[in-house]
Simulated assay, not measured.
Amino acid sequence: MDESNQMTSATSVYESLPAWAYSDTTYFRAEMEAVIRPSWQLLCHQNDLPNTGDYVTLDILNERIVAVRGKDGSIRTFHNVCRHRGSRLLEGSQGACGARIRCPYHAWTWDLEGTLVNVPYEKDFEAFDRREHGLATLPSEVFLGFIWVRLDGRSDAPGVADQFAPYLEEILPYRIDEMQPLGRVTLRPRPVNWKQIADNYVDALHIPVAHPGLSGLVGNTYGMEVKGDIHKMWGNVMETRKDSWSTRAYKRLLPEVSHLAADKQRHWVYYRLWPNVAFDIYPDQVDFMQFIPVSATETLIREVAYVLPDTRREMKAARYLNWRINREVNAEDTAIISRVQDGMASSSFTSGPLAKTEVCLLDSVRRIREALPQTMSRQKPS
């Protein structure tokens, strides 16, 4: 018998999660409860809501969430669900609702603070108290100008600011809290498990092979580390022999940014708040990404860029080139993760070795195994 077929079902520390954890429906539900629901999720930036009544919605794990700017200027987060019959209240990814939130089903109406202010046929509801039917809230936090929420309703978990504390000093100079959205949120469906996308973004070993444009941008300056709940990768924009037209032009046109130190003028850094929220930070902009699990084999990538106002032609050109380079990288990544998702369905693959230098991937595996010990087995539990 082949020696590989005699392997025990137990995995090692330097081994990936088992293939079945990327496609099994029953396990997916358990993972959502143990990993995604307890984590902070990014809803929007405060500057996505400039005016009273502006709102942004987020649908994740059958939760409908909305952030609304009130008359007092404050942003509040609610479940985007009517307290009468459960209808979705506000439609679309973002919009403006005026001074009231009105259900399109029976016209129950709330003010922007979540207080129920109108109920048609109210006298027909026995012993009815409006105070018991305000919009349902959930824990939220503002950090770097972003509005964050927790799906599990816990208020005693570490805050987002606490989780980012190891890197706060190096992040603050970018003035992210002042940034404006560059366009609208984009949702990109991918026919893969959410971990394929999250894993790929912190897999540095594939970059020289699969991303010639990105490799040409930062050469061999890649670094990575893990501190607490943050996975960090970085590189410096430099001259290389692999330059494409886009990367050459980006390097040539990117202007100096006055609020950044000299060593950050040509620096790229990626922060992932484990498990599924990430930021790509460049001198010219910040790209936000969120990997929203839909099913065991479906994920939405939710993304948008944020920038500081800058009318210089060189900056506008650099931002366009940044977008162009990222589109090339995203197309390459889409092909990669699809190959991996398909390959994991093969009977020949159970799990694979991880290099000891892949500290972000190793940390992800450790966290999931601690939350879901069944992933220690290469074989799917019966």
Rank of each mutant, 00 (worst) to 15 (best):
Glu3Cys: 06
Glu3Gln: 09
Thr8Asn: 05
Ser12Gly: 03
Ser12Leu: 13
Leu17Lys: 06
Pro18Met: 02
Met32Glu: 09
Ser39Ala: 15
Gly70Pro: 06
Gly73Pro: 10
His79Leu: 15
His79Glu: 13
Asn80Leu: 06
Gly86His: 07
Ser87Asp: 05
Gly92Thr: 08
Trp110Pro: 03
Trp110Ala: 01
Leu116Tyr: 06
Asp124Thr: 07
Arg130Asn: 00
Pro139Leu: 02
Phe143Cys: 00
Ala161His: 14
Gln163Glu: 15
Glu169Thr: 12
Leu172Lys: 15
Arg175Met: 09
Pro189Lys: 08
Arg190Asn: 04
Gln196Ser: 07
Val202Gln: 05
Pro208Gln: 01
Thr221Gly: 08
Ile230Gly: 05
Ile230Ser: 07
Gly235Pro: 14
Gly235Trp: 15
Ser244Gln: 13
Arg248Cys: 02
Ala249Lys: 13
Ser258Cys: 06
Ala261Trp: 03
Arg266Thr: 08
Val294Glu: 14
Tyr306Pro: 04
Lys316Ala: 08
Asn322Gly: 01
Asn322Val: 04
Ile325Ala: 02
Arg327Asn: 13
Val329Tyr: 07
Asn330Thr: 13
Ile337Pro: 03
Ser338Gln: 14
Arg339Val: 14
Asp342Thr: 12
Gly343Ile: 02
Ser347Ala: 10
Phe349Arg: 11
Val359Met: 12
Leu362Arg: 11
Leu362Gln: 05
Ser364His: 10
Met376Ala: 07
Lys380Met: 15
